[in-house]
Amino acid sequence: MAHDARKRTLSTRMSLLDVKTAPYLYIAPFFIVWAITGLFPLLYTAYISTRKWDLLQGDLGPAGLSNFTFVLAQPGFWQALRNTFSIFLLSSVPQIITALFLAAVLDANLRAKTFWRMGVLIPYVVAPVAVSLIFTEIFSDRSGMANALLANIGVSPIGWHADTLPSHLAIATMVNYRWTGYNTLILLAAMQSISTDVIEAAVVDGAVRLKTYWYVILPLLRPTVIFVIITSTIGGLQIFDEPRMFDLTTIGGSNGNFMTVTMYLYNTGWGPQLNMGRASAVAMLLLAVILLVALFNLILSSRISSVDNPSGRHGPGRKTGVR
């Protein structure tokens, strides 16, 4: 009897242990892969940023913070940072606004819904190199379609590659073309998860379509909008493919007028300097900038939402101003 009791006790303990440890075992493979492919490269980059690391000769000894001070003293780094923020703002802000509009349209009672929803995703699945090559021809300084259309309305040709702001607009157009559909489908999925009872209650209260969207649907989309903003921030500040393919003869333009931080990093590590220590320092500085901007976006989005809904209620009714 005592043996059976001990056996039942051991079985109970094993069952409790299985219940407690099973969730961690299920998610462990992801964190193991992430530690190998994500955390380790990040920590190793931070280590290399404090070393005199030549691409050809390897580690030449400690450098302390000299790599960071050297990078911060270079005018080219600050120019690349300004270009990155300019392209990021010109792409992310219109991209999110357009994605919200398209998601609302696709959420309506349209014919051939699947066709239109697949259509907005087509630019995302096209190879970035193909998109960049096509838009490079469109925004060609001499024979591009953009300048040809402008000439028809009496506007002088624009130096899309030579001038700073036009080059940023052209690159931002490529980014918007590729990523707007992706963000649209994310927002559309969030819209479709909203209970129809909430929307019907707003309609019964007398809210028109625009007010229903502004006071009911948009507040309920806040977590998804914040997610889209954060991912757009991370991707926008790491932009490389579009500006690199925009001009294959130079890296960032003849005067660096559209060189981004990632292109500056590439030029530092694999360009004439061949200095991986300084390139790693650029990478760590870019990481700090991304974290700061992402945190600022998160705080700003949360405060805007709390101002729009001081009572904390997202549903329809008199207190939310739907009527």
Rank of each mutant, 00 (worst) to 15 (best):
L43K: 07
L188I: 07
F101M: 15
L287N: 03
F246I: 08
K52W: 12
T249N: 05
G271A: 01
T196W: 05
A279P: 01
M191Y: 03
L42H: 07
G317L: 08
S86A: 10
S86W: 01
M284E: 02
P166D: 02
G256Y: 05
T37M: 14
M284Y: 01
Q273W: 13
I234V: 11
I122R: 06
D205F: 07
D197Q: 11
L102Y: 00
A281G: 08
Y26N: 03
G159A: 06
T260R: 02
R313D: 13
V198L: 13
L210Q: 09
A22P: 00
A46N: 06
L218D: 03
P166F: 02
A73C: 01
T45N: 14
T180V: 06
L287F: 13
G236A: 10
I96G: 08
G312C: 07
Y26S: 11
I230S: 13
Q57G: 13
I194G: 15
K7V: 04
S311Q: 12
F139T: 03
W270A: 07
F246Y: 12
N152R: 15
L16P: 01
L298T: 11
D107C: 07
L100W: 01
L25H: 06
Q74K: 08
L149Y: 06
G181D: 04
P94M: 10
Y213T: 14
T212D: 11
T231G: 14
T262R: 06
I27S: 08
A281I: 04
T21V: 15
L150R: 05
G252F: 03
I226P: 04
P166V: 07
A80W: 00
A283E: 01
N67L: 10
I229R: 00
L169S: 01
V129E: 03
F135L: 01
R209E: 13
F30R: 02
D4W: 06
Y266A: 12
G235E: 02
L150G: 08
F31W: 10
P94D: 10
R278G: 06
L102N: 00
N255Q: 10
A201C: 12
V93L: 15
W160Y: 01
M259A: 05
L185C: 07
I194Q: 11
F139R: 05
T98S: 15
N67Y: 10
V282Y: 11
L55P: 11
P29S: 06
W116S: 11
T21L: 13
T233W: 02
W160S: 01
G58R: 15
L274N: 09
D141Q: 02
I230Y: 05
T180H: 03
T231A: 15
W214K: 09
G253Q: 00
V93M: 08
A189S: 08
S232Y: 04
K52M: 13
V131E: 06
N267A: 08
Q192Y: 10
I32L: 15
Y124G: 03
G236R: 04
L218A: 12
A189T: 03
L285Y: 02
P29G: 05
P157V: 09
T260A: 09
A281N: 03
Y266M: 12
D247N: 10
E242G: 01
P29A: 07
F77T: 00
G269Q: 03
I290D: 11
V19D: 09
V203Y: 14
A281L: 10
Y124V: 01
I87N: 00
